[in-house]
Amino acid sequence: MGRMKFLCDVERCIDCKGCVVACKEGNHIPVGINRRRVITIGQGKPGEKSLSISCMHCSDAPCIAVCPVDCIYQREDGIVLHDKEACIGCGYCFMACPFGAPQFPSGQVFGARGAMDKCTFCAGGPEENFSAKEIKLYGQNRIAEGKVPLCAGMCATKALLAGDASEVSDVYRERVFKRGSGASAWGQDKKAYKD
């Protein structure tokens, strides 16, 4: 079985936010919750770059480590999903996440947070595939239908790639080879993290 991955090509992303709209529309996400966001750095300056970000479905995901109910789990293909009915809305996963992926609806009793909502890689949730409950709680299950997630399918410049890790990296490697961006294309000229 493959390993599902997102990859956003910052040389191609044009900050159109089509991925955000596609995700929100297709999965009926309430106002105030964004499973996917587009972040732009150096706006209006030379070298402006945009990146579409959602849950990155990490291996050894910190959200799974901190969840006090253990309602977040990782499928064999690497997709990180969670059980909304067990979630207690404590917000720990948001604090552990390096990408700010977990989102919380407000407006419960005393303004408390409701159950967490995050990108499912369009793979639904723990409920039965295509059941009404799954669609209501988690949105579409395009993976079970054999399709790519809505955001990646929507992306006009094909900056956002989603699918099996080896396929995604093949596509990206070919692009980088054609572009000739050098080693910096992978971000390897600078370290993202301290040693």
Binding site: I41, G42, G187, K190, A192
Partner: peptide, 11 residues
Amino acid sequence: MWLKFNNAFTG
């Protein structure tokens, strides 16, 4: 570049 993006996500 990646550090800048990272800071924009969640600090």
